[in-house]
Write a protein that binds this DNA or RNA. Structure first.
Lengths: 342, 342
DNA sequence: CTGAAAGCGCTAACAC
DNA sequence: GTGTTAGCGCTTTCAG
C-alpha cells in the first residue's frame, strides 16, 4: 500500500505519517481525531511524525468522508453608499472570530440581485457549506422560510418580524431597549421635549426602535404629540425633518433611528447656529464610524455585534451537533456610547 | 454498480443522474464539465435528469479529485475603531462579486494577533484554499515573502514597498496620483497655499500620497515650505495639525492623507468660525462614509476598489491556470469625488 | 489499543 | 461519443 511515489514538494498524507511513525494509517487518523484511544507513547511518536512532515489533514478528503465542510455561508451585500452604516464590517469580523473556536470558517457569497435565494441553493446542493448565517431578514425573509423547508441549518441575525410563528433560531439586538436607553439618558439630563426621527412605518426595525423612545417618554408621563417624524434614511431627510420639528414642536433633544439621520439633525443645527449638546442634544443609532469621527462626537446606540456573532455561532454549533440541540433564540441589549452631542 | 439504496432525502449523486438518464456516470461528468464532448441529444437527456433530480456536483468529492477548492482565502482584520475608514467592507464585497465569474468563493479567516502567518499556514497545508488575497502588505509584508517561499499562489492588494525586488503579482492604487488630482483640483480653483497633513514618515503609503501633493505644487512652481505636517491618523491629530498650520503658514486649502485627518481639519475650522469650502478648502482620502455623510460633504479621493478586485481575481486566475500565466502587476488611478469642502 | 478493508462522489486516463 | 477502471485522502466499521 505504500507503493506510490512520494513527490517531495507535495503535501504529506496520512500514509506518509503512518510510514514514518511506523504505525497504520488508521492509528494516525485516531491520533488526530480521537487521541484518547492511543497509548501515550504511540501518540507521541505519531505527533512527532506529524510535526516533522508538517502534516495537516486534507480538507477535501475529510469533508467527503464526514459530509461536512466546516464552512458557514453568508451572503455579503454591499453597504449602502451615502449612509453612515458600516455595521456589517464589524459583524463579519466578529463572526469570523467567533467561528475560529469551533474550527469553522466563513464563506462569503454574492447576492444575486433578482433572486434572493440564488446562491443559497447552489451552495446547499453542492454541500459547499454546513450552514448559513442569514442577515437580511428585513427584506421579508424568504430565505428563512425556504431554508427551513429544505431543512438547511441556519441561524438568522434578526427576528422574523413578519412571521412570528417561525421556529428557526435567531439572534437579534433589542432596538427598543437601545432607544429607551438613549431617551432615558436624555430625560435624566433634564430634557422633556425629546423628538424622534425614524424610518417609514413599513420598517419593523424602525418601529421597534421608535417604540423604545415612545415607551420611555410615556413612562415619565410626557407627551409625544407632534414630536415624531418618519422619513427616508438619508442625511437630507434627517435635516429636513429636524427643521420641521424644531419649527413646530421646539424639542430640546432628538433621538434618531440611525446615525445617518442624526447627521442630518446636526446639519440643521449647524445651519441655525444651534450648538449640538449645549443647545440641542442628539443621539444616533449604530455607533458608526461617522459617530466616532464627527465633531462634536455623536452619542449613539451601539449594537453588541461581537456578542451577536458568538451567540449565532453557538446556535449554529448546536444545530449541527448530533443530536441537534435547539437553543432558544436570543435578544441582546445594546449600550449607549455617550459623546458630546448629549 | 447501481445496487446501493437511494434515500430520498439525500442529495442526488452522479450515479443517480446516470441511472435516470440511462448513461454512464462518466457521461454525466462530461455533461457537467465538457459538454462539447457529448452528442446533442445525450446532453439533453442528461440535462433533463440533472434538472429533475436537482443535482449539483458534490464539492468535497470534486475538490478531492481535482486538488482544488475554488476558494480564495483572505485574512479579515477588523476596521480600526475611531478612524473613518471602512474601505475593507467595500473591497471585500467587490472581491466576492469579482470571484463569482470564475466560480470562486471567498473564505475569510481571522488574523492571529501575534503571528501574521498563522492562519495562512493551516489553510495552505490542509489545502482548504487555492490561493490568497493578501491585503496587509503595509505591515512589513512577511506574508508575501513567506507565501512566495512556500510556492503558494497569491496576489497582493498593495505594493511590496519594502521589497521592490519582490516578484509576486500585486494590484494597487496610485496614491500619489490621487493626491495630485486633489491638489490640481485646488490649484485650478485658484488656491496657491495648499497644506498637507499626512502620516508619519515610516508609512510608505503616506509618503506616496504626500509625493502627489508635493509634485503638483512644485510643477506649478509653488513653495511648500512650512506647509506640511506628519501626524498620527486620528481626528485629534488632524485638528491640532490644522491649527498649527493655520497659525504658522496661513494656507487656504488642505489636502489630507485620510478622511480621518480631514475630519480633524473640519473640526478646527468649525472652532475658528471658518467655513469649509468657502473660507478654507479641504480634501480627504478614501471617500469613506464619513465623507459622504458629514456636513458639508467632504471632497475626497476615492479608490477604485471594484476595479482592484477585478484585477486581483484576474491575476489569481492566471496564477492558477495551467500553465500559469503571470500578468504584470497593475497600478490603478483613483478619482476625485468633489463635494462642498472644495 | 491497533490494523485491514471499504467506500464517500467525483474526474482523469484509457479502451471500445 | 460513451463506458470501464482506478484512485484522490480520509474516516468508519469491524477484526484481531
Amino acid at each position: 500500500m505504500t507503493h506510490d511515489v512520494r513527490r517531495a514538494a507535495l503535501q504529506a498524507t496520512l500514509s506518509d505519517v503512518a510510514e514514518l511513525a511506523g504505525v497504520s494509517r488508521q492509528t494516525v487518523s485516531n491520533a488526530m481525531n480521537n487521541p484518547d484511544l492511543l497509548k501515550a507513547d504511540t501518540l507521541e511518536r505519531v505527533r512527532a511524525a506529524v510535526a516533522e512532515l508538517g502534516y495537516s489533514p486534507n480538507r477535501a478528503a475529510r469533508n467527503l468522508r464526514t459530509k461536512s465542510s466546516r464552512l458557514i455561508g453568508m451572503r455579503f451585500a454591499p453597504a449602502q453608499e451615502g449612509t453612515a452604516n458600516a455595521m456589517m464590517d464589524r459583524f463579519v469580523h466578529s463572526l469570523v472570530e467567533a467561528c475560529k473556536v469551533g474550527g469553522y470558517h466563513v464563506l462569503l457569497f454574492p447576492g444575486a440581485g433578482d433572486d434572493p435565494l440564488a446562491g443559497y441553493d447552489d451552495l446547499l446542493r453542492s454541500t459547499a457549506v454546513d450552514a448559513f448565517v442569514v442577515t437580511d431578514t428585513y427584506l421579508g425573509n424568504p430565505q428563512a422560510v425556504w431554508l427551513e423547508e429544505r431543512g438547511a441549518p441556519f441561524v438568522a441575525f434578526g427576528r422574523p418580524w413578519d412571521a412570528p410563528e417561525a421556529t428557526h433560531p435567531w439572534v437579534d439586538v433589542d432596538g427598543a431597549a437601545g432607544t429607551r436607553l438613549a431617551t432615558d439618558h436624555l430625560l435624566d439630563r433634564g430634557h422633556t421635549r425629546i423628538a424622534w426621527i425614524g424610518w417609514r412605518k413599513d420598517s419593523p426595525i424602525g418601529e421597534d426602535r421608535r417604540a423604545g423612545w415612545l415607551g420611555a417618554m410615556h413612562d415619565r408621563g410626557l407627551s409625544t404629540t407632534g414630536l415624531a417624524s418618519r422619513v427616508e434614511d438619508t442625511v437630507a431627510s434627517g435635516a429636513e425633518a429636524a427643521g420641521v420639528l424644531l419649527d413646530d414642536a421646539g424639542p430640546s433633544a432628538f433621538v434618531c433611528a440611525s446615525d445617518t439621520l442624526a447627521m442630518g439633525v446636526l446639519k440643521t443645527l449647524g445651519r441655525r447656529g444651534l450648538r449640538p449638546g449645549a443647545d440641542v442634544a442628539v443621539v444616533g443609532f449604530d455607533d458608526s464610524q461617522v459617530a466616532q469621527v464627527v465633531s462634536p462626537g455623536l452619542t449613539s446606540v451601539r449594537q453588541p455585534l461581537e456578542e451577536v456573532a458568538i451567540e449565532i455561532v453557538a446556535r449554529l454549533q448546536g444545530r449541527l451537533a448530533v443530536p441537534a440541540e435547539l437553543d432558544a433564540s436570543s435578544l441582546l441589549i445594546p449600550r449607549l456610547v455617550v459623546r458630546s452631542t448629549s
